[in-house]
Nucleic acid binder design. Structure first.
Lengths: 327, 327
DNA sequence: ATGCTGGCTGAGAGCGCTCTCACAAGGAGA
DNA sequence: TCTCCTTGTGAGAGCGCTCTCAGCCAGCAT
């Protein structure tokens, strides 16, 4: 009833352990008839190599960890960024014959768990996504000698390789569109100041406005729908004459839409709205939301590529403006 | 630069491998001063046990797999069911000091990968969630001798332990509410007929209607927003006089809301709508959606409990009607 | 003094695999 | 015919750990 071992297969095929190992691992230096015999034995016994034993000698685990430094709630909410990254990572890891182990490190306790798990030889490398502030995790792992790449430019000033999306450029293009449409008082509901995405999108907004000599009008949110609602309400309070708003996430844009409706403003007639992320709900918003789409799946793929090819340097992926009706 | 081994720690602390092992694993039969000395050595060297070596001898991996038999797109969409399960599983596994390995087995290839991974000794047990039709995976794993529990009653007629939510009862209570509110022609947009949730919720709808002697009006969807829109449109076509609809998922309810608006029906005045799942967007719908909430997090916890305590029998969790404005 | 516990510690086997190295054939070249 | 490769196969060490067992040294009863 116990799982068959290499030895059992070898006995059945009438060869040595070494030969079975060779066949299982696809060595070419095995005579055809023996290979066939071994494969039949493997089949008949339902043999699957014991990964622990294999890892013990090869010092490889053939799997990589994808850790989210974030409470699970957010990871699995409407944000398509995570879904895209996960899909991209899965696809690329698959191609490289690596397993993906997803870990959530929401709490401090989680951090410690992740550190133990990854340093105990379970994985060959780690992708750290969705960091807040100056997350010490990636650097800690790197210090331990574990290959690490970050999803999103790390705020720690470390020289770890990363893959990011051009948040600054994306925000700029959103604001530029607003400018080109003749909007004059363009506000923003910014993201949290402890996340790169929040910081960079605000920078993009400022850049674009500065170039045009216009004044910035800012409220701070945390990427959630409610914070978008509140931010928009506050913005309307601060400057009732605003005629456009750039929300640093679609969820906040959805909240903003609600606040605008409540305030009796028509979108896009009175106030144009642009979001960020292109969430699944964006095309169903009222009115359908103009937004910035990110190549999240490609991001996932690049992360794995980078992890597996330590030589290469960090990459920054471009965004795309998706025009619908809100702006 | 290489990771320190037990041997190194032993040498530094001036004791044997066995003693270090005892300390690391919390044995009580170690003299206090020796324990302290060993712990200091562990600390100084930054020793972390090699999990592969440990697994090799203990035959345990101290981790469990949570596999979703579903394309990642759906797993990480607005559906809070998955998020809840993941959180519950994480929490309970944490308490039992087990790691959770998340795997997506969307494709056939994925199935095979999961089977290989789980049978190769990487995990001590598997939780299979979100199965379609008569998924052969759980039974296949069980046959291999791997502990398996299913999230949702398996359609295979196998006797595998499972945790499910009372879909029938939930649907019944939704329809009953509609009945009690005096609605007379109650339609449903059902879920896919190859998933337990789809089947059982339809059964619940039928049960409740049968008891009241009313006729059923049915359209089939696949839990997505678009299918809800189409289903509702078709329903309106079939029976323009309907005055209520039970959608087997909130996303479909959202689509239905849109179709109703387009057809000029007011909700809830002309047509009452009840959804299922209580997605994050439900309270923000127009009007806010009355729906059935499921104890998803608890489901996750129960899954782990069941996996870790093989004696216990399958459980079915109750649902809760959340009344908002759509019905 | 002798024998017996009982509490701690160390020696050593072995988990299932990979990989190096030695070695057996068989063919080519001298 | 003998040597020298070349090609394919097996023997065996060892990866880092756990766990059984034997051994040692009190301390106590006899």
């Amino acid at each position: 009833m116990s799982r068959p071992t290499l030895e059992k297969v070898a006995a059945r095929a009438g060869v040595s352990r070494a030969t079975v190992s060779r066949v299982v691992n696809g060595s070419t230096t095995v005579a055809e008839h023996i290979r066939v015999a071994v494969q039949r034995a493997v089949e008949e016994l339902g043999y699957v190599p014991n990964q622990a034993a294999r890892s013990l000698v090869t010092q490889r685990a053939d799997s990589i960890a994808l850790v989210f430094s974030e409470p699970p709630v957010r990871v699995f909410s409407d944000d398509p960024t995570f879904a895209g990254i996960i899909r991209g990572v899965s696809a690329e890891a698959d191609a490289a014959d690596k397993q993906v182990v997803l870990m959530l490190a929401g709490s401090t306790r989680g951090h410690e768990r992740v550190e133990r798990y990854t340093t105990s030889g379970h994985v060959d490398g780690v992708i750290v996504a969705s960091m807040h502030g100056a997350d010490p995790l990636p650097a800690a792992l790197a210090r331990r000698g574990i290959p690490v790449v970050c999803s999103g430019r790390p705020l720690t000033g470390s020289s770890l390789p990363y893959v990011d999306i051009d948040n600054v450029g994306g925000a700029e293009s959103a604001v530029r569109r607003l400018l080109e449409a003749g909007r004059r008082r363009i506000a923003t509901v910014a993201g949290p100041p402890d996340m790169v995405a929040g910081i960079d999108r605000l920078t993009g907004y400022r850049n674009a406005l500065r170039d045009s000599g216009r004044r910035s009008i800012i409220a701070i949110g945390d990427f959630t729908r409610d914070s978008g609602y509140e931010g928009m309400t506050q913005l309307l309070d601060d400057d009732p004459g605003l005629d456009a708003v750039f929300a640093a996430s679609d969820m906040m844009a959805l909240g903003a839409l609600r606040a605008l409706r409540k305030a009796g403003r028509r979108v896009p007639d009175d106030v144009a709205v642009i979001g960020y992320d292109d969430v699944p709900a964006a095309p169903y918003a009222d009115p359908p939301l103009t937004t910035i789409r990110q190549p999240t799946m490609r991001m996932g793929r690049e992360l794995v590529r980078l992890l597996l090819n330590p030589g290469e340097s960090s990459v920054i992926l471009p965004t795309e403006l998706v025009v619908r009706e809100s702006a």
